[in-house]
């Protein structure tokens, strides 16, 4: 990754033009030409530096739902619980964290009602309480990652 790749990543996280030639427009703002920008995006995607070039959706406004949930299984039972939780297709990602509440995962479901169902199913399968921590208010941040 060189300085041009870094400029692409730093400048194209928040906004991308909605115009007939969006790559040409974005490239111009970076001092590149269209072909060069497309070629570099292809390489960054192939290398896995980028997961994709495209949209991030707002689950609730698509009719689906997202929530953050936490559990605090005892450390000696953590692996078993993690395997069960990760086996649910609705679990989008899961992190082990340093705290009594040591497991934090995001649930993404196609229907709002499904969140409560999945939480009950996880509680039943693991034998531990799941704490639902849905967002009440979101504070939007700007640029995500500086390369």
């Amino acid at each position: 990754m060189d300085a041009i790749d870094r400029a692409i990543i730093n400048n194209l996280q928040g906004g991308f033009p909605l115009s007939e030639r969006p790559y040409a427009e974005a490239a111009a703002s970076l001092g590149l030409d269209e072909d060069e920008l497309i070629r570099r995006l292809e390489i960054l995607l192939a290398q896995g530096t980028l997961t994709r070039f495209g949209p991030l959706y707002h689950a609730e406004r698509l009719g689906g739902a997202l929530t953050l949930a936490a559990m605090k299984p005892p450390p000696d039972d953590f692996e078993r619980v993690a395997r069960i939780v990760n086996g649910f297709p609705e679990v989008a990602h899961n992190y082990a964290r340093e705290h009594e509440f040591n497991m934090w995962f995001v649930l993404a479901t196609e229907w709002p009602e499904r969140i409560g169902e999945v939480i009950s199913e996880i509680e039943k399968a693991t034998g531990y309480a799941v704490y639902n921590m849905p967002k009440l208010e979101e504070f939007f941040v700007g640029l995500r990652f500086e390369a």
Partner: peptide
């Protein structure tokens, strides 16, 4: 048409259905 796609995406962005649009990075790799 191209214009229909652009107009609809603009509307979906304004309605907040599309939160943002651009590079999605794998932060660990950075």
């Amino acid at each position: 048409s191209e214009q229909q796609v652009i107009a609809r995406l603009q509307w979906l962005k304004e309605a907040g259905v599309i939160r943002r649009f651009g590079v999605v990075v794998r932060h660990h790799e950075l």
